[in-house]
Design a protein around this nucleic acid. Structure first.
Lengths: 252, 252
DNA sequence: TGAATAGTGTCTATAAGACAATATCCC
DNA sequence: GGGATATTGTCTTATAGACACTATTCA
């Protein structure tokens, strides 16, 4: 949001003479944690580093920001260029700035969380040798937080570059914290879904089982769900009703 | 957290030849929202800008980061240098990066929230003409979010520089969100306090009245409070028991 | 004694968990 | 019909809100 303010003449003169190099400047990157629920666990995409530093290790998709784009635009651009995805829900996670987090020079990283449903996640096509879908194992309960471990069927344990294990840990922690009072779970589902689908997403993020009856009642009582009138097809049992996110999704 | 990783020789050679200026770099500042509850409302400290840009308007205490300090160290340094406070609870709020948020050049701001009790807040001594304690009026309910307005007895409505009205808005929103499941309210109180003190802090942050009975039961049930065995002194009614934050304060 | 707030006990309304009963699909 | 899951309804238990009552201090 820009301020509707006229720049006074004295300030214009000052601005004309301003030298950006009068303060030391760090480099700044954005890194994107692309999250999707798959087979009951959160997964994220990491890319093998072909260059120094941390060559050969795995890193979140990221890149240096441009001076003519906002942080969110940078995250959108990086995600699109590395995965081909666009129109993805993005949320800023936090900024990592330990002095020695990058051995090259002082580099800050603004981390973003990107949420997609399993279908879109599996559409992502990147050279097989250079990317891995990592299953996130969270070694802590609740919202305690901390670094996490990643593993993939193809590459086994994925050793992460930089502080990316902590970045992914913060993403999981943030998701868990937001799930109770925001409709962020919808971002991890296709447009139409059953109540059990939604419950499984919650269970996947929280890492624990939920009571089915109470979950159903709570979700329907929130008024954020709208029945489509359709039901599942092709399941070998009674089909469940399909819901979509309600248009006037009240923010709590 | 630094990685316990030996740098391979090839990477050492690469690092020796790395040129930080090969990517364009923005300037980066930290801004600190110092929050304290006073007379039933959240207040924050703002400083009148003596230089361009936004000369004469009010801004959060802030400054450019140094390349040899972490972001949190920068926030600590800025807070200490502008207010004399140290040992304050600090938490990263988010990073603001709109392209035109600063008319000088591209400047990102990493915002931090600093929480103190009313006593420490009023200890802050800065030149009277240059600083104002702003009462925060929040024009939205719940956790909706958005910019807020500031006013002070001495200077009336405080027109804020940059995007600082949004930064303060995010601080309030974050505080409201965290209050339910973290002991962050303790940071806004002196070491010993009564249950009513704690309730008033919650009411101040949330901007609404809470049920006394239920609040008392809920807080005592959390197991994060420890009775000191002492009671209030010098009040003209039955003195309330004093509590302190429990040592083994269970997270949730 | 009266004003004021602290603290306790009890009742009610609401939400969560447990579980039984019935519904609807595919095979 | 059998297997599987959906959906509804009821019962029990935990928690929140409301409110009455007693306790303790100062003026």
């Amino acid at each position: 949001m820009s301020r509707p303010r006229a720049t006074p003449p004295a300030e214009q003169a000052f601005l004309a003479g301003y030298d950006p190099s009068c303060f030391p400047r760090p480099s700044v990157t954005v890194d994107v944690v692309l999250l999707a629920p798959l087979a009951g666990q959160l997964h994220t995409l990491v890319i093998r580093r072909l260059d120094h530093p941390f060559r050969g290790l795995w890193a979140l998709p990221g890149g240096f920001i441009h001076l003519d784009e906002s942080l969110e635009q940078a995250a959108t651009r990086v995600l699109a260029s590395k995965t081909g995805l666009d129109g993805v829900f993005l949320e800023q996670l936090g900024t990592f700035g330990a002095v020695d987090r990058d051995p090259r020079t002082r580099i800050l990283s603004v981390a973003y969380c990107a949420l997609v449903d399993p279908g879109r996640f599996q559409e992502v096509r990147v050279p097989a040798e250079d990317a891995a879908v990592g299953r996130i194992s969270v070694p802590w309960a609740g919202e305690a937080g901390g670094p996490v471990a990643l593993a993939s069927p193809a590459h086994g344990d994925l050793e992460l570059a930089f502080d990316h294990a902590e970045v992914i840990g913060l993403a999981v922690k943030r998701m868990r914290g937001k799930l109770d009072y925001t409709p962020v779970g919808f971002e991890l589902l296709p447009p139409e879904f059953t109540l059990l689908d939604l419950q499984k997403v919650h269970e996947t993020v929280l890492g624990r089982r939920l009571n089915k009856d109470s979950f159903r009642r709570r979700m329907l009582a929130l008024g954020q769900l709208e029945a489509t009138g359709e039901v599942q097809e092709g399941v070998d049992h009674r089909p469940a009703a399909l819901y979509r996110r309600a248009k006037g999704g009240l923010a709590r």
